[in-house]
Amino acid sequence: MAHTAAIHTEKPSKWSGGSSPFKVEYGKLMMWFFLLSDSFTFGALLISYGTTRFATIGWPDPNVAFNKFPGISANAPLAFVSLMTFILIISSVTMVLAVQAGKEMNKKDVVRYLILTIIGGLIFLGCQAWEWTHLFHEGAWWGANPFANSNGTQSTQNFTNFFFTITGFHGFHVFSGVCINVIMLIMTLCNKFEQRGHYLMIEKAGLYWHFVDLVWVFVFTCFYLV
């Protein structure tokens, strides 16, 4: 059979076995596939939000709902969330620097950048806690929406329902990312990676952290901007 003959031809390629076709170790591959699958979780939540918004007559204006900045009583739409966005971007940068320092086997830099990343994550979580508290005192919570539609008509609860669920789920990811980074920091300080001879774990933690940042790009746009 011509077909079988084709299969028999020995042609060494990346896929012919014995090594990874992607030149990555399995842990990183697994992390990538996990993130792909997690992006479907977030995707499903955000798409549900979009679907509900498309299915509803009228929607509150996010610039009215999210218009406060701590310490400022004036109307300041988009200000606070911009701050949060920049914090997350900066913490992503420090993380990528930590990963790079790991590749160079530079323990001191790894520790320094990891600490900066953890601080960034904690500040972000603090910002979110402040925002949630503030919204709660305005009467917003799961099942309660004090904000009228942008044209002043009766709005649905789903505005706040989705906001708290999705930012909460994202915040949970940030929280677990911070936990992972703390574990990485402890392992680095205990010279675990020096003993192993590589900092591959930091790279995987970095992937997770960047994913959290990536999701925030979408959450930020979908909830605060449009």
Binding site: S37, A44, L45, S48, W142, T165
Partner: peptide, 22 residues
């Protein structure tokens, strides 16, 4: 595909216990 079901279940849990109406 399982993550999408997972997301659907999260919303369902909120509907059951936290007064939402997704």
């Amino acid at each position: 595909s399982f993550p999408v079901l997972f997301a659907g279940f999260i919303l369902l849990i909120f509907d059951r216990h936290f007064g939402t109406s997704f």
